[in-house]
């Protein structure tokens, strides 16, 4: 009895300690990406890192979506399709509808979520490799559709997309016009990182909510969770829609940075890469895809010095990583907390 009360009373401070540690971690992370990284770049003069890191941030947003579908036990190799769709929606709204970029960003996400519900409803009944292969095919479908439709301008794509405009509320400029900035790269970096932080906060919140627990039950045993009254069909469509929303937003941002979009902007290779980012980081960890994206994308960039051996070293490292840490890089930190 005595030990039991001790155990219970010991729980509350433990939890607060843990949440303070989490808050501290988030603050440190924010300080790092918004303060240390720009300072480092300014000090070293490697302005090209901005582009790389912006790409990392955006790719990790799309990878977050893939991770969420992994979380309900589905292998999603179709995120490229939604990134492409999001990019096209944003571009067409901007160039033909004259809509502000900042408005097209959520609209692109919503559009992707909507089509993902239509597509996901039938195909989410598939499992395992079947679902993986259908989503892989979906990326090809998106590319071929973009080639065939008149509005997307076929293989020529859409180029010279305007930079994001300014946003001001009642005379106060919230976001300056990107075209007037002397360093749009840095601005894009800040926007991308903000989007990334928001997305991962949302993801973390989802995973640690009732919805997250339900998703986990789907991952472990779908029949069992359906038998105790979980609406599995609705849940997996919801998770897939959120995932596609992330994909669309990332795609739209990416396009506005490169100021051009082609049917080959996101191909099967990209979809496979999103999946790999999740694997490398670790499927069991919310921040796995972020770390995986950073390692793989940045690593690939750094390996450029290896010249023709770049791909060999890159893939060799990936295989070695798989042999040493088959459950992702973040499983390294698991051993300390193995007792729980």
């Amino acid at each position: 009895m005595d030990t039991q009360t001790q155990a219970y009373s010991g729980r509350a401070p433990d939890r607060t300690r843990r949440s303070t540690r989490q808050v501290l971690g988030v603050v440190l992370f924010l300080a790092f990406v918004f303060g240390v990284v720009p300072a480092f770049i300014a000090a070293t003069g490697r302005w090209d890192f901005y582009y790389t890191l912006t790409s990392v941030a955006l790719l990790s947003v799309a990878a977050a979506g893939v991770w969420l579908t992994f979380y309900i036990g589905r292998i999603n190799i179709g995120q490229g399709a939604y990134a492409l769709a999001g990019g096209y929606v944003s571009t067409i709204l901007m160039t033909q509808g004259g809509v502000s970029f900042w408005l097209t960003l959520p609209l692109a996400g919503l559009f992707c979520a909507l089509i993902s519900v239509l597509i996901g409803w039938p195909i989410l009944r598939l499992r395992g490799v079947y679902f993986a292969m259908v989503t892989l095919v979906l990326t090809e479908v998106a590319r071929l559709t973009a080639l065939a439709l008149p509005i997307t301008n076929g293989a020529k794509g859409i180029t010279s997309i305007p930079l994001p405009g300014g946003v001001s509320v009642m005379g106060v400029t919230l976001i300056p016009d990107f075209a007037t900035l002397e360093n749009p790269r840095q601005a894009f970096y800040f926007v991308a990182v903000t989007v990334m932080v928001l997305v991962y906060l949302v993801l973390w919140r989802i995973v640690n909510s009732r919805l997250g627990h339900l998703c986990r039950s789907l991952q472990q045993n779908e029949e069992l969770s359906a038998s105790i009254g979980v609406n599995t069909a609705w849940l997996r469509v919801l998770a897939y829609a959120i995932s596609s929303f992330f994909g669309g937003v990332a795609g739209a941002m990416f396009v506005s940075i490169s100021q051009s979009i082609y049917p080959s902007s996101f191909v099967v290779q990209d979809s496979v890469n999103f999946m790999l980012y999740c694997f490398v980081g670790g499927l069991g960890y919310v921040f796995g895809p972020m770390l995986g994206t950073l390692l793989l994308y940045f690593g690939w960039d750094l390996l450029q010095v290896a010249g023709q051996y770049q791909l060999l070293i890159y893939s060799g490292t990936m295989i070695a990583l798989m042999l040493v840490l088959p459950n992702g890089v973040l499983s390294l930190f698991d051993r300390k907390g193995a007792g729980k």
Binding site: L276, V280, Q308, L311
Partner: peptide, 23 residues
């Protein structure tokens, strides 16, 4: 822990073979 991990390995091998073929 999860069956899907083999997919990363398979994709890694695909890249690796590409690199070997190239060289």
């Amino acid at each position: 822990k999860r069956d899907e991990s083999t997919m990363l390995l398979a994709a890694g091998i695909a890249f690796f073979l590409d690199a070997v073929i190239l060289l």
